[in-house]
Design a protein around this nucleic acid. Structure first.
Length: 490
RNA sequence: CGGGGAAUAGCGCAGGUGGUAGCGCGCCACGUUCGGGACGUGGAGGCCGGGGGUUCGAGUCCCCCUUCCCCGACCA
């Protein structure tokens, strides 16, 4: 029996949408462009949050919270910033409702118009820098290393669950520094933290790099990013870290007195990852049977399915399950025993496969007899029989192996999908099959724009650990010092 | 914001030329099952997305609105 999941080959978009909904991660809400993140999906996000939050704190950051509403005037203070976000802002204009004259409806009370409209934050640079002005007088007040976990709203035309929704959850770090070098190094430090998180926890290989001018964050001097390749060959920006220079300090007049007693503007960074990572996670590892979750982020790492016919067998298998569960829990492994009598084992197998639980244990009468358990891993669908006596230890190792295996699988996928093009014809041909294409570019945004127009491919980044290599731009033939990373992106 | 679809039971769908709604899955009850989404019998469930019209009569024809999906442009 199938799971009624569209296969990736048949329709990748449908596969993704079906999977998100059927695996209980999220669903469309009654509000256009907004999603409901369901408990199972939210549990994964919570694990991402917990891990990232610890990484942020271990690197000296602290959490705070700034308002959801941002006065419109704040936005206009940094010219390129407002330009970048103006087209997708939700604006609050009134603060009161009233009954309509016929009493049948609730309408906006036109007399309750706000003096100054409020923008629902699409990002918090402006409100934060307006606040930092009051926090900073001296170099002794620096650095400020603040992060916030929040929701933001960007009024998107076209939305997709997790990948692009009008409201999404994220974290945004906003730091203030006394010197340029320190701010640049903070930007890179956070980029590295994101890359480490992606690779070690999400098991998703990423390429670190710098964005070109046209892909840069509105208001930044430099945007660094991690780029991942999805199974359909499209690239996904998974996180960004911005060096903001003194742009926001100048816009909000945030000065400090340095050690020499001279006034200077503060240097800034901002960095963020969002619930989009959920989409990245799904599209990196999952297959036609359902989700494949990396053990480090799986809400349930091991599920135990008891198999029995008689009440006596039920009793015996549940007892055996309980012992294994305790042993696994003592190794900090999250375990669930599915004791429900309302579904057959086969049904449960399919269900946990759909939900991507990394390891499934089956315990039936035969196992009780032999002092064994059946262990099935989700990533390879391989089944083995373990002796109960050393099962917990082996499963602990198995989880590590699965984490490692899905990373390697994703990495090898990316490697086979990464090409080098030396001519424009070659470039266009390679793009047809999806994947990353490394090619020379003359550094001109105009050229980049034309390539995008003609092929839909964008420069995802200039890889950070790039090998310098003399060459000629595939489009103009002008000299180029290195290859840049092209792809069709989400 | 353009271009295509679509909206009928919880989900997926069928309902030529108008005559008062059906199938599969799911749900409920009982029994037999249970090592890869079990089976039988019985049952519940619908102002056919919303609003107007045409008609004796509209799921079906006409107009308007709303929402969702897919593909582009824009963006994390």
């Amino acid at each position: 029996m199938g799971k009624n999941l569209t296969s990736r080959a048949e329709n990748y978009s449908k596969w993704y949408n079906d999977l998100i909904v059927k695996a209980d991660l999220a669903e469309h809400s009654a509000v256009k462009g907004c999603m409901v993140i369901k408990p199972y999906g939210y549990a994964i996000w919570e694990k991402m949050q917990a891990t990232l939050d610890k990484m942020f704190k271990d690197s000296g950051h602290v959490n705070a919270y700034f308002p959801l509403f941002i006065p419109k005037s704040f936005f206009s203070k940094e010219a390129s910033h407002v330009k970048g976000f103006a087209k997708e802002c939700a604006v609050v204009t009134h603060y009161r409702l009233k009954n309509s004259d016929d009493g049948k409806e609730i309408v906006v009370d036109e007399s309750a118009r706000l003096e100054e409209e409020l923008i629902v934050r699409p990002t918090s640079e402006t409100i934060i820098w307006n606040t930092y002005r009051n926090w900073i007088q001296s170099y002794r007040d620096l650095p400020i290393l603040v992060n916030q976990w929040a929701n933001v709203v960007r009024w998107e035309m076209r939305t997709r669950l997790f990948l692009r929704t009008a409201e999404f959850l994220w974290q945004e770090g906003h730091t203030a520094h006394a010197g340029r070098e320190e701010a640049v190094s903070e930007t890179l430090k956070m980029l590295n933290i994101y890359a480490e998180f992606a690779e070690k926890h999400m098991a998703m290989p990423v390429i670190k790099g710098v964005k070109t001018e046209s892909e840069r964050f509105a208001g930044a001097l430099e945007t660094y990013c991690i780029e991942a390749l999805m199974q359909d060959g499209k690239a996904l920006q998974a996180g960004t870290s911005h060096f903001l220079g003194q742009n926001f300090a100048k816009a909000f007049d945030v000065k400090f007195t340095n050690k020499e007693g001279v006034q200077d503007y503060v240097w800034a960074t901002s960095w963020g990852v969002s619930t989009r990572l959920m989409g990245a996670l799904v599209m990196s590892h999952s297959d036609d049977e359902g989700l494949v979750l990396p053990p480090k982020l799986a809400p349930i790492q091991v599920v135990i399915v008891p198999i029995y016919k008689t009440p006596e067998e039920r009793q015996a298998t549940l007892e055996a399950a309980s012992k294994i569960k305790q042993e696994l829990q003592s190794r900090s492994i999250s375990v669930k025993t599915d004791e429900r009598d309302t579904h057959t084992p086969g049904w449960k197998f399919a269900e946990y496969e759909l939900k991507g639980v990394p390891v499934r244990i089956g315990i039936g009468p035969r196992d009780i007899q032999n002092q064994t358990i059946e262990v099935a891993r989700r990533d390879t669908k391989e089944k083995s029989t373990y002796q109960v006596v050393d099962a917990a230890l082996k499963i602990e190792h198995l989880l590590e192996q699965i984490q490692d295996n899905i990373y390697k699988k994703a990495l090898s996928f990316r490697e086979t999908k990464t090409f080098s093009a030396d001519t424009y014809e070659e470039f266009k041909e390679m793009l047809k099959h999806g994947g990353f294409v490394l090619a020379h570019w003359d550094g001109d945004p105009g050229t980049e724009g034309k390539i995008k127009e003609e092929t839909s491919a964008t420069i995802r980044c200039i890889p950070y650990e790039n090998r310098k290599e003399e060459g000629k731009c595939i489009y103009t033939g002008k000299p180029s010092a290195q290859r840049v990373l092209f792809a069709i992106a989400y």
